[in-house]
Design a protein around this nucleic acid. Structure first.
Lengths: 110, 110
DNA sequence: GTCCATACCTAGGCAACCTAGGTATAGCCG
DNA sequence: CGGCTATACCTAGGTTGCCTAGGTATGGAC
C-alpha cells in the first residue's frame, strides 16, 4: 500500500516519537509500527529525507562507522511544528472523507 | 484539499448513497457532504467518471433536455462491490496511519 | 441582450511516489 | 577463503493520478 500523499507526516511522526534514527531503521520502524502495511522502498524514503532536510524540517549527520557508516536524522523545531500541522491536516482529511462516506461509516475519533 | 488517491471511493460513495446523479450535481454533493473540503474541479471528476464507466463500475445515460441535457450516472453491481472494497481499504489505511501516529493519536472508530 | 450559472468535455502539465539499478561493507557458513 | 545475504546508502527516470486551462453550449435573470 502506498502512502497517498501522507509520506511526510509518517516520516516526521516516527522521527518525533522514536528519536533520531537512520534511513534504513526508519523504514523498518514504519513497517513495524504499521504492522507491515507501510513497507516503503528506499527509493521513496531517501529522497524524501533529503527533501525534508532541504526544507529545514530535519537535520542529519554522519555517524562514524560503528559498525557501519550511517546517516542519522533528527527533527528540527520547524520539523516538530510541521509534524503537528500535518497531523491536524490529516485529522481534518479523515473527518472530511468520513462525512462523505456517511454516518454509517462511523464517527471520527477524539 | 485534494483527494490523495481516494477519488474513486468518494465518487462511488456519493453514487451509492445519493442514487443516480449527473456530474455537476455530484461535484456539488461532494462539496456539501464534505463541508466544503472537497470542491473538485470538473477536470478531475468528468474524466474519473469516464474511467469508472470504462471499468464497468458505473453506467450512464443521457437525460432528455429537461431543463438541460445531462449525463446521469448510476452504480452497477460491480460498482457497489468496489465501493465496499474501497471502503474496507480506506479503513485499513486510516488504521495503519493511526498506528504509526501512535496511541496518543486516538483509536480508530468502529 | 448580456451575464452568470449550469452542464458537459479534453489535452497536456505537474507532483509524488516507485522501479530499477547502482555502490560498499559486515557477518555468516562451509 | 569465498560466496551469499543483510545492512546501508544513493539517484535517474518512469508511472500514476489529479489538476490547470481551455473549450462548447444552453437556460434564466435583470
Amino acid at each position: 500500500m502506498d502512502v497517498r500523499g501522507h509520506l511526510d507526516l509518517l516520516l516526521l511522526a516516527v522521527l518525533a516519537d522514536g528519536g533520531p534514527v537512520h534511513g534504513y531503521a526508519l523504514i523498518a520502524a514504519l513497517r513495524d509500527r504499521s504492522d507491515g502495511m507501510f513497507d516503503l522502498p528506499e527509493g521513496t524514503v531517501y529522497p524524501a529525507l533529503h527533501r525534508l532536510e532541504r526544507e529545514g524540517l530535519v537535520v542529519s549527520h554522519w555517524e562514524p562507522a560503528v559498525p557501519r557508516r550511517r546517516r542519522v536524522y533528527a527533527l528540527t523545531s520547524d520539523g516538530r511544528q510541521a509534524r503537528v500541522a500535518k497531523q491536524v491536516e490529516w485529522r481534518s482529511f479523515v473527518s472530511g472523507v468520513q462525512s462523505v462516506l456517511g454516518p454509517a461509516a462511523g464517527p471520527v475519533p477524539a
